[in-house]
Write a protein that binds this DNA or RNA. Structure first.
Lengths: 213, 213
DNA sequence: GTCTATATGCGGATAGAC
DNA sequence: GTCTATCCGCATATAGAC
């Protein structure tokens, strides 16, 4: 009964080779989650590697340094954010723009870690490279609101402020308290004008990476 | 001429002994700045020690672990925040409450790192102890707004959102761009309804701790 | 109360095989 | 393209003197 499957005779199941571009994207996606959960300094390249299903040195090899990897994560996140906003702006709808952009923003929470990684970047202004990228990206979003979406300075402020509160609620994992704490539930409802369920879905850390560290 | 001052015969100038309470407070203040600049994971106990003018092991000895130190920093910051808010609420004034609370909030920026340390805590919900403290503290502020300040849920949301944007502008060091970038200047003006100068003052890292790391 | 010296573990990065 | 093995530095924490 030990030779049931001949497939067991294959060489040690190594990872299938992948086109560099695809592998790159899958590592970036994994890194986005990990950085979102633990922050730039707190996350390890080993965690990223595990989440991406590759070896730790390979992650470093592909991006040069952990910092460069994080910068790529930030740029990718900003790109996805602006792409989503521009698509929202282009589509025709009866809903007011502010509501549509708000929904688009909250929809980004489906890509776990995306807004959180950005938030971690925003708070690391003291790091030269990360700070520069973060400031630049934030200003790009502000410029989008002012020039493309046609918002006033005050409208932009209010929109960005709501966004930062959303990020904070996610980062602080306030959704953990939703069921047990009525105050938390009220706060969450106020923070997520619509699509509250999206906030509640992204509570815990993915089981595949969480316990190992 | 070698015995001009007998005081030179003293033992190697060690640090003056201090009452435990005072030393504790001075370390907490130093830690608040360092954690604000580099985050919980990024900051080292050696940096805190240097900023406080004591040895690294002493910092650990006094607080047990780095994590416990950070938790104390968070609790201290939350305490100062609520104390400031309650004082604002108690004072009589013709100004609308929302403006006065907003000013009180921005005034906290004078205690460098205070709001920033909080922000770092808010974004680390994945850490059990830190997350718990952060959620609890955030809810305490929300409860203050709702019950003591008499805000509605929506008013509270708007206030907290503005606060999170302020925190982000400080963390990202947007003020560095104020002079050279008109867009950044406009954004900052919108983010700080009043007391913009307080935001601009807290740009760089203290010279005594920055370069060493 | 405060320090110096140090053990220990962990994480980023490199070398080199396949 | 991807891995294994490993080096090295750094940061927390401990031991113990003063």
């Amino acid at each position: 009964m030990s030779t049931v499957t001949d497939s067991a005779a294959q060489p040690p199941a190594k990872l299938a080779r992948m086109r560099s571009e695809d592998r790159r994207e899958s590592i970036l996606a994994a890194a986005t989650e990990v950085f979102g959960d633990y922050g730039y300094v707190g996350a390890t390249t080993a965690q990223v590697a595990r989440a991406a299903g590759v070896s730790q040195p390979y992650v470093v090899r592909m991006f040069g340094t952990k910092e460069k990897l994080f910068l790529e994560v930030l740029l990718r996140a900003l790109g996805l954010l602006l792409t989503s906003f521009r698509a929202t702006l282009a589509e025709e709808s009866d809903e007011p723009l502010s509501r549509r952009l708000g929904l688009a923003y909250v929809d980004l929470l489906q890509d776990r870690g995306l807004l959180l990684s950005l938030m971690h970047g925003f708070v690391l202004g003291s790091d030269p490279a990360i700070g520069e990228t973060a400031r630049c990206g934030f200003l790009e979003v502000y410029t989008f609101l002012r020039e493309e979406a046609g918002y006033s300075a005050d409208e932009s402020q209010a929109f960005l402020a709501s966004g930062m509160l959303v990020n904070t609620m996610i980062g602080i994992r306030m959704s953990d308290e939703y069921d047990s704490n009525p105050v938390a539930a009220e706060l969450l409802t106020a923070a997520f004008p619509e699509r509250l369920e999206l906030a509640l879905g992204s509570g815990a850390v993915d089981a595949s990476t969480a316990p190992q560290k």
